[in-house]
Design a binder for these strands. Structure first.
Ligand SMILES: [Zn+2]
Length: 169
DNA sequence: CGGTTTTGACCCGCGC
DNA sequence: GCGCGGGTCAAAACCG
């Protein structure tokens, strides 16, 4: 499951909850929900940025894909059913935010430790790899600048937070 | 001194 | 195999 959300607001000014859709649902421009048709139940939450989000909300934001998301994997060709079972279809493991910002490091309220940096092919911009600093928390994120429109920053979250509440410190 | 950044090396899956 | 692309490790440097 891969979710792609574009937002236009420059969020770097806000600290603490910039990436939390609970607090900033209105900033969403549109969203692309890959493999969304497999999403049947609404008992299980969709996870965005480590936080659960209602499915209805997600469905309302549903739009067909397109635009400059070429770096995304095609759900129809991506390793097929490499993920065992089908239950995990109900849980989003990856979420991509596309945010218009001059600054690369957007404060989403969490503490991250950078553990890697790679140049992206067909792009002059690097991609940065971060992991949540909280002990035992498996959440990771990647940050890169949109190749097509460098005024955007694409942040991809992966995993679900071990803990609650942004712990910035 | 402890956590973070930096950065090249390393790993792994895949297509040829 | 080998090379490539994407992802991660880790040692040393960095910094409050
Ligand atoms: Zn976390």
């Amino acid at each position: 499951m891969y979710i792609y959300i574009e937002r236009e607001k420059d969020l770097h000014a806000h600290s603490g909850y910039t990436m939390d859709p609970y607090n900033y649902p209105m900033n969403l421009e549109y969203s692309d929900f890959f493999e969304f048709n497999d999403w049947k139940d609404d008992d299980l939450p969709l996870i965005v940025s480590g936080y659960p989000v209602s499915q209805n909300y997600a469905a309302n934001e549903m739009v067909n894909s397109g635009g400059s998301n070429s770096y995304h994997e095609d759900p129809n060709t991506t390793s097929g059913d490499s993920r065992s079972g089908r239950e995990n279809k109900k849980t989003a493991e990856k979420v991509a935010f596309k945010t218009k910002s001059e600054i690369d490091i957007l404060d989403d309220g969490f503490k991250w430790r950078k553990y890697g940096k790679k140049m992206v092919k067909n792009s002059p911009n690097p991609r940065n790899y971060y992991k949540c600093s909280v002990e035992g928390c498996p959440v990771k994120k990647r940050v890169e600048r949109d190749t097509m429109d460098p005024s955007y920053v694409v942040t991809t979250y992966e995993g679900i937070h071990n803990h609650h509440g942004p712990s910035q410190l």
